[in-house]
Design a binder for these strands. Structure first.
Length: 253
DNA sequence: CGTGTTTGACCAGCGC
DNA sequence: GCGCTGGTCAAACACG
């Protein structure tokens, strides 16, 4: 399960970076994605395709903002300083403000902000001052099980776990276990770290065996069993199938 | 002793 | 100018 989560994390990270690069390349113009949204065609956007993949039966409590709000949010982004938001499901009882993204962070402050009873923690990349990336972490007001991490800037060094050998997964793979919401100033990706455990560096060694057929087989069995064990997932799947059936013309039944 | 965290103080920006 | 707020600093502290 840790392997799956790690693979998904890397895939998702690359996906987000690609997304942000493509938005930057638009040079201030509204991207085709947003143009589509302007036309109200939410279902055809790549954001929505990802957002349909809710995590382990979880559904985000965030409401999708209007198209106009989304455009404002994206346009507010500082072109010189890439800002991204990531929501991570954690144990609501866990008071630690740790979002395990693989990088090493040094906490330099904590504040209680207006409108949110949960404190906001400020982190700097441990490679500072050579790496000026900052991170703000605050528990979501809407769903206290979500930690919202706001990243400012881009790391100018390699990811600490980038050397880990993982299978290649197409970036168009729609099985990314995440959801994307548009609440706030920028689209936010929500990952679930509660059900699959969290990434532990000490387990890094085991990833080197991930390409072996034995491991792949075990992985498939684990995935299959986790799907059948997860009652919420089977319920959602059943609902989706039945909904599909009801929309199919009678001739095909 | 080195490193990381905590937390009150301080500063800058903003609205009135 | 004043007060509020978010962000940062830095001394004190904890921990291995």
């Amino acid at each position: 399960m840790l392997s799956i989560m790690h693979v998904n994390y890397n895939t998702l990270r690359n996906y987000i970076f690609d997304l942000m690069r493509s938005q930057k390349s638009e040079e201030g113009t509204i991207s085709p994605v947003l143009k589509k949204r302007k036309n109200g065609d939410f279902k055809s956007t790549s954001y929505n395709e990802v957002s349909n993949n809710n995590i382990g039966g979880y559904n985000s409590n965030f409401e999708r903002t209007s198209n106009e709000d989304l455009c404002k949010g994206l346009l507010k982004e500082d072109p010189k300083c890439m800002v991204s938001q990531v929501g991570v499901y954690t144990d609501p009882l866990d008071s630690s403000m740790v979002v395990k993204d693989g990088y090493q962070w040094r906490k330099y402050g904590q504040k209680v902000t207006r409108g949110n009873p949960y404190p906001r923690a400020y982190f700097r990349c441990s490679f500072a001052p050579s790496c000026a990336v900052k991170k703000k972490v605050q528990r979501s007001l809407q769903d206290r099980s979500i930690l919202v991490a706001t990243y400012e800037g881009e790391h100018n060094h390699a990811h600490p776990y980038e050397k880990v050998a993982v299978p290649n997964i197409s970036r168009n793979d729609r099985s990314i276990p995440c959801s994307v919401t548009n609440k706030g100033s920028a689209p936010m990706v929500i990952l679930d770290l509660t059900q699959q455990g969290s990434f532990q560096p000490e387990l890094e060694k085991s990833f080197s065996e991930i390409d072996s057929p034995e491991f792949q087989k075990l992985l498939m069995e684990q995935m299959a069993s986790s799907f059948t064990i997860n009652q919420c997932f089977t319920n959602v799947l059943a609902n989706a199938i039945s909904a599909k059936i009801f929309h199919v013309p009678a001739a095909q039944n």
